[in-house]
Design a protein around this nucleic acid. Structure first.
Lengths: 245, 245, 245, 245
DNA sequence: AATGAATGAGCCTTCATTCAT
DNA sequence: TATGAATGAAGGCTCATTCAT
């Protein structure tokens, strides 16, 4: 259960970093358990999912789970952590070679939605199961998520410095709003019975985020990249024929 | 328990609307329980919260809760239902006298954030506790939430017809993105230790949603209302000095 | 719940005999509740049956049940009591005009099975639901049931005195065995999905009880009545053609 | 609860035979729980008995009960099943070497009553607690009990073929009546405060069942065995001096 | 006498976690 | 390292009974 307010026992030395690694497959086992946890959480929900189920799905005994993870919560946290770490790493790498602010946002959005769209179980866990209680979410928000938002914020801030984005909005706030859009798209995809390509939605998000909904001419400063993006989005959604004088 | 996969017994006639009302305070009792549930869910989380706690907080016996609600789940669902019903009702009324599309969005955003900002416990429940499992969320999304999104969508669609909003984005998608922004702002507020006025954020959201982040002249079609909004938002966030040529 | 060991509160004066009788239909109401209890116990089982259900079936409010009966147990006890009282009364009356021992047994058996066969719900309650716990059964056995068995015992004892029955068996024991046979027939009928006439089985029981299963000539002392009985039983069961040398 | 009408979840593979057996005492544990259940049900009644009490009496934790049994009902069912299985097995073995029909019945009766008389707690459970509700009893009657009755029926049928028993009664019906007698004796013993040897009653039952109550000469076909039985019964009950002309 | 809303004690069952092997 | 049987705390829910009206 989520220790909404009950203090948890301090993690043993064992859990604080060192893990069974004597054999080459030790890491594999941890991975297997984590994969099984994602699948099980996604299908049954965090609370309904039983540790024993996860263990079975991972092909290990129930007790073994506790050799690699502190407790059930830790499984959820670890899923989040690993996913965010990958997202941050991937995001940083992808942005290294990109300087254009809009293209940066585009890249972020694309990677974000691609990650979710690629693994539905993971998406379910991230979009739904991860949000179990305030205490839980506070724990997430204050670490990795902040870092992830920092990447978005930096992209926005640099865009503002380059004059591509207007200064009127705080980058932090704008970053949250951008994230909010992506998050909503992902959640919608997860809850929808339809199986459309989530990644394709990224262009829409960037388009709206950058250009807004107001009817007006496309601004001259829009980069070639972004324009392409916008067009792609336009095409994909059959919203063609937009007259942009 | 969240009915992640187990079907719940059909609600008895008793629970489907009719409730004990012979005593004058019967309606009050239901209200009291619902209020207590909101408070308790917010403070302990849905799963950690005990029905007995809720009952105690409401000043009734544990069994009494079950005279007014089917089960623990039903409490959560009822909170959502009532909140959404109010939101929809309030939204519709507020939009009746407003025709300007941007002002409409502004109104929606303002009411949305005001509702959450006004009642932190309710906000916690709506932003966090309500999202317990896929099955739960699917239940929500497919009814009231769709209706709520419909209001936003209509506002956007009418804006497109009036030429205030561009046609390039499907109203449904745009509505989700707008909602995603509001939702993110509310979630942030809930998780933040700071106690800033949430309602004030609405202008920001509308500004970004309408104008986008791109640096460019304010469009001529922007209504006076929206311009005022933008300014207000600007001021409130001390982002002043934005040079908009 | 059956107070298997918990002492029950002493019955209030109200329940100790006096009952609401101011109106002519007061007795009716008690009857109605008892009838409803029989039906409800029979269909749901004693424990699963709810007092509220019984009240509803009787067309009264839940609280009203407690104006006529001490508690749920008392309903069961009252059903037993009334049934036994009727059985005893009916049995005594029927035996008044009969002197032949076998005919007496025949009469007892016929009435016994007829009573059950006539009212399936009552039969279910008597054959199954009444046997809830040792304490409960001890309560029954030591009163009315003993009286009922006494009637059988007397019939047997008088038969022994008349030389119709042999002396080798204690009348008390023989009475129990006779009762055991009847009881088993009734239980079988209750549990059987088939709906055959239970009363018709009485002849069989008496035949076996009196004549035994051993193959041998019918004894000369057998009364005309009993012989008729035996024949009837024989016929009904298509066991015809019995050669009794 | 007695599944008066609610269907129970299908037993998991775990419960369907396989049980924890890695430790040497695994089988013992199941036995211990079953013994504790018999004792607890006998003393408190099925409904009043708490699973926690049974666990405590068995020297295990409450949860452990559920490693070996599906639920509380399953405990009762398992008691019945094991008892009946033993009875059937024991009965079959005992009859293997016996051919005389009366001796067979005698053997059946003796074993039946000995089984109950040997273990008062078990007797209480079998004679009283097992008969909780129609659905419960239907479940019992349709399986093991039918098998048990089959043994009696066969003994009777073979007796009829050998000419020892008359043909006039269907073996099925006669078997029930025989069982009804035994059952009544057992129930009486259970409910009686006196502690007389139940097994000794078997001769009485067989005597009455075979010879009937009618006053008449002992039939020539009666076997030596049965005659001995009859005499024994006679002696044991101090009913001696029966003149059988 | 009748009502039925309110009570609150009571219990079966689940399942995360441990630990002897 | 791995196992999985055992643990036992915890809580949702029921329902007989009461009592103010």
């Amino acid at each position: 259960m989520i220790p909404a307010d009950t203090p948890r026992p301090a993690p043993t030395a064992h859990h604080r970093g060192r893990r069974p690694e004597s054999r080459a497959d030790a890491g594999d086992k941890r991975q297997a358990i984590l994969r099984a946890a994602i699948r099980t959480f996604a299908r049954h929900g965090f609370f309904s999912a039983q540790v024993a189920d996860i263990a079975r799905a991972a092909g290990v005994a129930a007790g073994t789970v506790y050799l690699y993870f502190e407790n059930k919560d830790d499984l959820l946290v670890s899923i989040f952590d690993r996913t965010m770490a990958e997202a941050i790493e991937e995001g940083r790498q992808a942005l290294e070679s990109v300087t254009d602010p809009i293209t940066r946002l585009d890249e972020i959005a694309r990677l974000h939605l691609a990650r979710m769209g690629r693994d539905r179980d993971l998406a379910v866990v991230c979009q739904v199961e991860l949000r179990q209680s305030v205490k839980f979410m506070e724990r997430f928000s204050s670490t990795r998520l902040r870092e992830y938002l920092g990447i978005i914020r930096d992209a926005i801030a640099s865009g503002q410095q380059r004059g591509v984005f207007r200064d009127g909005l705080k980058p932090t706030v704008a970053a949250k709003l951008f994230f909010g859009m992506l998050d909503e798209m992902a959640t919608n995809w997860v809850l929808s019975p339809r199986r459309y390509p989530l990644e394709a939605e990224s262009a829409l998000v960037v388009d709206l985020f950058v250009n807004g909904l107001a009817s007006r001419p496309v601004v001259a400063t829009q980069s070639a990249d972004a324009r392409k993006t916008t067009k792609a989005a336009t095409r994909k959604h059959d919203d063609g024929g937009r007259a942009r004088p």
